[in-house]
Design a protein around this nucleic acid. Structure first.
Lengths: 343, 343
DNA sequence: CTGAAAGCGCTTACAG
DNA sequence: CTGAAAGCGCTTACAG
């Protein structure tokens, strides 16, 4: 009924008790007489009183709020991770604030400070594919952060990162895709997107190479293009590849870093009059909501992003220091076709 | 160098000064002697000390954190709003926490409590299209929230909501789309998605009707379908419409509530062998990132979601109590064609 | 220019 | 079962 921002003193004096007693009924302690409890509760209701979680936080040293650092929210892939993490946090009574990747990456405005100053109970950091020379800098920033609060990583985490982490087995994922394409008769398989990773045996590059080796296919340098994970980058990359090769050397299948890149690849192929999937099969990754509505509907890898986010929150809260792997699933939709040998 | 969670007392004793002095250099006050400042700064650096924003918040009554309530984050439309709001907040030194729509909508776990207990400096609420009978309940919840903190609304806000708000002029948007389709020769124009709104002259329904009237086209009940704003809903809705009408009555153009619905409409039309845009033109809304990659590339309305989110933050922080409108832009991409009259 | 003291809104022993 | 008091980590007058 009354207005906002009553304090525990208002309630106490209104109910004619001490603030300690108000605090007791607030926290549902049992050692309060029914009569007193009722009086206090009435005062609370009357004032529409809500205890300040920040005053509580001063004492309990816990803020019940977590942070999550994302490279970009507009990529639905990260939105899904966020969504999973956020829902899990909410179930456990935590709120969740978002921070930009630059919090970790740069010292400019040093928003890592924001993370620390807010005394979060923990933070999840989604690491993107890192260029090797960037690696040390990021690792140092993460280690510093870790001195202030628990940190759990999501994504493609190098094995020498000493952090709890949740990720997919990217190399195994790539091997599966290559094997899948090989089973459809493909031999000229391109891989588009991602950074050059010369150190990490768990990553996609290595999985791609292993996949080829496993199928006794040669590695062709011109089939491997590095680049950013955007649709534009994918369109440019495949476009350049096609334009630079005689048609008889064109790949019959493309593995895209993610669905965005795959979308761009479709556009590039369409512009050059390629029939899909007849002349070009494409596999994406992340299984974005629009994958079923592309032309052709995109075969992709569902990486269970929401589960990934949720697990990260569980690790964060439980304090378990381990690296976990989340399963994935190949979703066949029709963007891949069996190769028809001429003759 | 040292470990985490030093307090102002640690710094003071380490530097041999009082906590008041530490506080002064922390806040960059000028009335500190250079020598003292240097000593204190050295101690701060040595401990890697970061003042607790929550202790500060106890005094200043401001937490420098905002909340935003979104119906769903997985819809990229809301992700864009969030992104714009979030970036603007960050520029002004605020962090931003996300809360689910159920915070407002239900009394179940009453997470509106969470909003209040965290003593946020303000909250942005994105309201979805509401069914009329839902309206009162939501309005009451919003009004209660407003007693505790500033509230700014985003979205399709009924004129009788007494809140500052940022939105598009939905009716005008619809009129423009209808006029655009009419200019291409369309007379059978369907409208798919959204709820039935019998009270609000600013909303889409009314704009659609006005657009038809303006072009002296009759309103055809079977061309207007209500429903949720998902791709599945769109596919079902258009599918049912087509299946229920003789082909000569099929609409030649569809206005979809949003791009998700439009995607579903494309799927429904494709399944029935319709040539697009030859036999069916489609206009979406929201201009999602995938719109250019659909088949055909989707003509849509860019509603400037990021600007919308940013403006909402500005209103929230400045405290201006006004309703604002954000411009929009029709993006032509090729999903609409001129009608070819037979004969 | 610097420090001692009060206070922000709570919780937590400690008495009674 | 209830209250007086100390304390969480800061900022802010108020003295000096």
């Amino acid at each position: 009924m009354q207005n906002e921002n009553a304090t525990i003193y208002d309630i106490a004096s209104d109910a004619g008790v001490s603030i300690a007693t108000v605090s007791r009924v607030l926290r549902g302690e049992t050692n309060v007489s029914p009569a007193t409890r009722e009086k206090v509760q009435a005062a609370i209701d009357r004032h529409n009183y809500r205890p300040s979680s920040i005053a509580r936080g001063m004492i309990s040293k816990t803020t019940h709020s977590l942070g999550i650092v994302l490279p970009k929210l507009l990529n639905p892939h990260y939105a899904m991770i966020f969504s999973g993490a956020y829902e899990e946090a909410r179930k456990m009574g935590y709120s969740m604030s978002l921070f930009p990747w630059s919090s970790i990456d740069t010292r400019a405005y040093d928003p890592a400070t924001m993370l620390v100053e807010r005394r979060l109970d923990g933070v999840i950091v989604c690491v993107e594919y890192l260029s090797p020379d960037h690696d040390g800098q990021v690792l140092a920033a993460l280690r510093e952060l870790k001195r202030f609060m628990p940190v759990v990583l999501i994504g493609c985490v190098p094995p020498w990162y000493d952090f709890p982490a949740v990720s997919n087995n990217d190399a195994a994922m790539m091997r599966q895709i290559v094997a899948y394409l090989v089973s459809l008769g493909h031999e000229k398989i391109a891989f588009i997107g991602g950074v050059q990773e010369d150190k990490d045996p768990l990553r996609r590059d290595e999985g791609y190479m292993e996949g080829l080796r496993g199928a006794r296919l040669p590695y062709t340098g011109s089939y491997r293009v590095y680049g950013k994970g955007t649709a534009e980058a994918g369109e440019t990359a495949l476009g350049n590849m096609l334009d630079g090769l005689k048609p008889e050397y064109w790949p019959t299948a493309v593995i895209a870093l993610n669905d965005l890149v795959a979308m761009g690849c479709q556009a590039a192929a369409r512009k050059r009059g390629l029939d899909m999937p007849g002349q070009l099969s494409i596999v994406g990754c992340d299984d974005l909501f629009c994958a079923p509505y592309l032309c052709p509907p995109l075969t992709s890898i569902n990486t269970h992003q929401q589960r990934t986010g949720a697990r990260a929150v569980q690790l964060l809260i439980s304090g378990e220091d381990k690296k976990e792997t989340v399963e994935w699933e190949l979703i066949e939709r029709g963007s891949c076709a069996r190769v028809i040998r001429d003759q």
